[in-house]
């Protein structure tokens, strides 16, 4: 498999701590710019199956952009993203910054579709479908995308909602749920597509402080079950307690990838130290 043979370049050390396992996510020299502004300036790292990785960094450093690249919501200018053996890259011949041709675009869309089969995503603003009940929200994608039978999709949705503690709220519309409940619903909705990797973009930033833990607890539970998770977060406590390791980004680059304790007690890079000072 290509994913296993690839070398690692750029700012990241080879693999994360605990390398030697199987990388399920491989990011290699990903660059991305909006017009003249470089947002991602050659990002590389690998993540092994079952890891929970936090990405932290100052606002505007490109965390969300990176995450969106990881499931093909954004295209890349150069580099490769490989998740579960499905590689996403820029079509050969395309120059960075140049508008990709229709052919390359279709190719990218096809690859992104394949890649997303294994990737679930949770957004800061939940983005549940307001016109559907919680149960319908979770059932929809399996029915529409995979053609799952309704009864089966419903049973599965019920199971997942029970798992995230919403078994009593199946027929509620999103608007009638608290933020924490909505976010847990959104996690269940993503899980319904049976992903191998879950991406979270600041999943608790929009929540009242009292509702943060119920969401983080779900993620910890998933971690225990062996789900691979990448979490962009400002919750340093969570990053520190739950992560297998932490990626610190700044200005479109990965500055440091460290064990969670090491990152907080003994950051290697002065920039990381500077950033974390506020939280310590």
């Amino acid at each position: 498999m290509e994913a296993q043979s690839a070398g690692v370049q750029g700012a990241a050390p080879a693999g994360g701590p605990g390398s030697g396992g199987t990388p399920i996510v491989r990011v290699e020299d990903v660059r991305k710019s909006y017009g003249p502004v470089d947002i991602l300036k050659g990002v590389s790292f690998q993540i092994e199956e079952g890891d929970l990785v936090s990405i932290i960094g100052p606002s505007g450093c490109g965390k969300s952009t990176l995450l969106r690249c990881l499931n093909g919501l954004e295209s890349l200018d150069t580099g490769v993203i490989d998740i579960c053996g499905v590689a996403l890259k820029r079509a050969p011949g395309g120059k960075a910054g140049a508008k990709p041709g229709a052919n390359a675009e279709a190719e990218f869309a096809h690859a992104a579709h394949l890649l997303r089969k294994n990737v679930g995503m949770v957004f800061q603003s939940f983005n549940l479908f307001p016109h559907k009940t919680l149960l319908e929200n979770v059932m929809l994608a399996p029915i529409v995308v995979k053609g799952t039978a309704k009864a089966e999709a419903e049973a599965n949705a019920e199971r997942l909602l029970q798992k995230v503690g919403l078994g009593e709220r199946l027929d509620h519309y999103p608007i009638d749920l608290s933020g924490g409940q909505q976010q847990r619903g959104a996690i269940a909705r993503a899980l319904a597509m049976a992903p191998k990797v879950m991406l979270y973009d600041e999943p608790t930033s929009a929540l009242d402080p009292g509702l943060v833990d119920e969401v983080l607890d779900v993620m910890k539970e998933l971690d225990r079950e062996g789900m691979t998770q990448i979490v962009v977060t400002h919750e340093m406590r969570f990053a520190r307690d739950a992560s297998d390791y932490i990626i610190y980004m700044e200005k479109g680059e990965i500055v440091e990838i460290s064990d969670e304790d090491e990152m907080f007690t003994n950051p290697k890079d002065p920039r990381t130290r500077q950033f974390l000072r506020r939280f310590l």
């Binding site: 919501l73 579709h113 983005n127 479908f129 307001p130 529409v144 909705r189």
Partner: peptide, 25 residues
């Protein structure tokens, strides 16, 4: 706009997202 994004992240095609998510709303 996030509604379309959420649908695509669930691996719906644009057409499926329009039919099931955007147009009904």
């Amino acid at each position: 706009r996030h509604q379309m994004e959420a649908a695509v992240a669930l691996n719906m095609t644009e057409r499926q997202a329009l039919r099931n998510v955007i147009i009904p709303q």
